[in-house]
Amino acid sequence: MFIVACDDGDILTVDLDFEGNLERCDNFEEYHLIYDTREDPSESLILILPKNNANNALFTTPTPVGEPVTIDISSTNARFLFRTYNRNLSDSELCDIVPPYDLSIADNYEAFDGQIQITVTVVDDDNDGVPAEFEGLAGEPYEDGIYWDSLDTDQDGLPDYIDKDDDNDNVLTIDEIDNTDGDDDPTTNPLNTDGDLVLGGDELPDYLDSDDDGDNIPTYLEDVDGDQNPRDLSNYVVDEFGSDIFRYLYNHEDYLDTYPDPGKRVTTYTRTVTTSITIVGIDLEILRTTIIDFGTLTTTLEVTPSIFLD
């Protein structure tokens, strides 16, 4: 985007055609530094936000639909700068606590008016091989962005779409599905070791079955060494055909032992946070304009659900 501005009667052409793929420095103790850079000429756009609970949430928690966060530009609320340099910037040099000795700022222009508008969206996924649309996603997201009204097969307080172990049997969902047909829908080609059915005659697939072999011993109690993994080598047995098989998948009178409760696995889910930033009514020394699309910042978080932390 080229913007023509006036500076004491002179006509200036300011090129703000940056890519809009923002990066963030999180290593400064007192503030977040969000930036976009380009080469030839070497320039940057920088947004500085103080670290506090409200601003920290802009990289973790969604904003209400249609209600972006608005922050006034000032020396204490938010600073927006346009800078030029004596040479091209390398990756993350703006995040260095001590600037490189050979890097200097040629021009520094800071806004003294305007607003920052920030919209935050999130996508949560347990990366278990089952897309959320097939895991009972329902309702509207709550303030934290989670669809708490969705299906929760094991009733552990964590909806299936962000639960890596939907039936709470210590065997991860991704190890209990068959996607050889490539449609990402485990209901069309379900693994159902014991062939059991639920009310209505539908199959109860292994990833939703807490007793996969139907021997009346919960899968998580068929764990010989108690390491919360019924699929490790200690849990192999030999079936009537001489083949190795996991104990929890083999309903046989010789393998009906129940082992001590090992507890349940602690799992995480991935939260992808998109922070979109627009600058409104900016007033720099060399530039006045109505709106600048600063760009988007993507933050990926590994989240441990609070149910595992209590």
Score class of each variant (00 low, 15 high):
Arg24Lys: 13
Leu81Asn: 05
Pro141Ile: 06
Thr70Phe: 02
Tyr250Asp: 01
Asn21Ser: 13
Asp7Ser: 09
Ile146Val: 15
Ile146Trp: 04
Gly242Tyr: 05
Asp293Arg: 06
Asp254Tyr: 07
Leu309Pro: 00
Arg247Met: 13
Glu140Pro: 00
Asp26Ile: 06
Asp310Gln: 14
Asn77Tyr: 00
Thr298Asn: 10
Asp257Pro: 00
Ala132Pro: 00
Glu302Asn: 13
Tyr236Gly: 00
Tyr142Leu: 14
Thr63Asn: 07
Ile217His: 01
Leu151Ser: 09
Ser92Tyr: 12
Asp124Met: 10
Asp163Thr: 04
Ile174Val: 11
Asp209Met: 01
Gly182Val: 09
Leu191Met: 12
Asn55Pro: 10
Ile286Ser: 03
Gly200Asn: 06
Asp232Leu: 03
Ser276Pro: 00
Leu172Asn: 11
Thr272Ala: 02
Ile279Met: 13
Phe28Gly: 04
Tyr269His: 14
Tyr109Asn: 12
Ser44Glu: 01
Asn229Asp: 15
Leu81Phe: 07
Ala5Met: 02
Tyr142Cys: 07
Asp209Tyr: 01
Tyr236Leu: 15
Val65Phe: 04
Gly214Cys: 02
Asp166Ala: 15
Asp96Cys: 06
Pro141Ser: 04
Asp102Cys: 02
Ala78Arg: 09
Gly129Glu: 05
Gly242Lys: 06
Glu253Phe: 07
Asp166His: 12
Glu302Leu: 10
Gln155Ser: 15
Arg271Ser: 12
Pro186Gly: 08
Tyr85Asn: 03
Thr84Lys: 13
Ile48Gln: 15
Ile71Pro: 01
Glu30Pro: 05
Thr289Phe: 07
Pro262Val: 02
Leu94Arg: 12
Asp152Asn: 14
Ile279Pro: 08
Leu172Gln: 13
Asp10Trp: 11
Ile118Arg: 02
Ile97Ser: 11
Asp211Glu: 03
Glu110Gly: 13
Val237Gly: 02
Glu110Pro: 05
Gly145Asn: 08
Val238Phe: 08
Ile162Phe: 06
Glu203Ser: 13
His252Val: 05
Thr173Gly: 08
Ile116Ala: 09
Pro186Thr: 08
Asp156Glu: 03
Asp196Tyr: 00
Val273Met: 08
Asn52Ser: 12
Ser44Arg: 01
Asp26Ser: 14
Asp107Cys: 05
Ile46Ser: 02
Asp194Met: 02
Gly242Ala: 06
Val273Lys: 09
Phe134Lys: 07
Leu309Lys: 06
Thr274Ser: 10
Tyr220Thr: 02
Asp181Arg: 02
Ser210Asp: 13
Asn168Ala: 13
Thr298Ala: 01
Asn179Gly: 10
Val98Asp: 10
Ser90Glu: 15
Thr188Asn: 14
Arg231Cys: 02
Val280Cys: 03
Pro41Arg: 09
Leu208Met: 11
Asn88Glu: 15
Glu285Ile: 10
Thr63Gln: 06
Ile118Trp: 03
Asp293Tyr: 05
Leu151Gln: 14
Thr13Tyr: 10
Ala106Ser: 14
Thr267Pro: 02
Val237Lys: 05
Ser150Arg: 09
Ser44Trp: 01
Gly136Phe: 11
Asp184Leu: 13
Glu67His: 04
Val280Gly: 00
Asp178Tyr: 05
Asp293Ile: 03
Phe2Gln: 14
Ser243Lys: 12
Gly157Trp: 12
Asn27Thr: 12
Thr61Ser: 11
Asn251Phe: 05
Asp181Ser: 06
Lys51Pro: 08
Pro230Ser: 04
Gly295Val: 02
Glu253Cys: 00
Ala138Met: 09
Pro186Ile: 07
Gly263Phe: 08
Ile146Ala: 05
